[in-house]
Amino acid sequence: MAAIHIDLPLTPEKVASLRAGDEVIFNGVLYTARDAAHKRLVACLDEGRPLPFDVRGQLIYYVGPAPASPGHAVGSAGPTTSYRMDAYAPRLLDEGLLGMMGKGKRSPAVIDSMKKNGAVYFGAVGGAAALIARCIVKSEVIAYEDLGAEAIHRFTVRDFPALVLIDSQGNNLYEIGPKQYQTEEQNG
C-alpha cells in the first residue's frame, strides 16, 4: 500500500479519511510536547490564559529530542510513550488539536475524545530516533525553554514517515495488528 502524503497542518477532511494502519508521510510544521509542557498547556487553559501556540489543526509530537550535534538540526528524536499525556490530551483535542504522534497505547477517555473531536493518533517507530532525526530539517524552541528537552519545539519536517495507530473512528492498530499474529501458544 502506498503511503499517503500529508502537508501539515492537518485538516478535518484529511483526518477523517485516514484509517488505522495507513502509512503516512508528513511535510510541513509540527509541534513537540511531553509531560511537563502538557501540564503547563493545561494550566494555561485552566487559568484562561492563551496557549503559546494555536493548537487548532496542529499535530503534536510527543518527543524530547537529544541535543543537536554540529551539522544537525536536531539530535535523535524518536517518540516517547504516549499514555503519560492521556490525562491532558482531551483538553487539547477540545481546543481543536487534530493530531497526536507518539508510541504506545491510549486510554479509553482519549479515544472517546478523538472520536468526538475527529482527531487522529499517529505512531512513529519508537527507538528509530537517529533515522527520524534525519527527517527534521529545522527546530526552534517556541515556549518553555527552561524545560530543556521538554520545551515546546516547532519542527519543520521533510518526508517524515509515520503510521495511523488510532483513527478518528476509534479503529486501533494495536488491537487489529496483534490479533492477526497471536496464537494459542501464548497460553502455554
Binding site: L173, P178, K179, Y181, N187, G188
Partner: peptide
C-alpha cells in the same frame, strides 16, 4: 520466549511474531 512471541504484539507493537 516462545509464549511471549505467540502474543502477536510484534515489532513496535503493531502485530507480528
Amino acid at each position: 520466549l516462545k509464549r511471549i512471541n505467540a502474543l502477536g504484539i510484534g515489532p513496535a507493537g503493531i502485530g507480528g511474531r
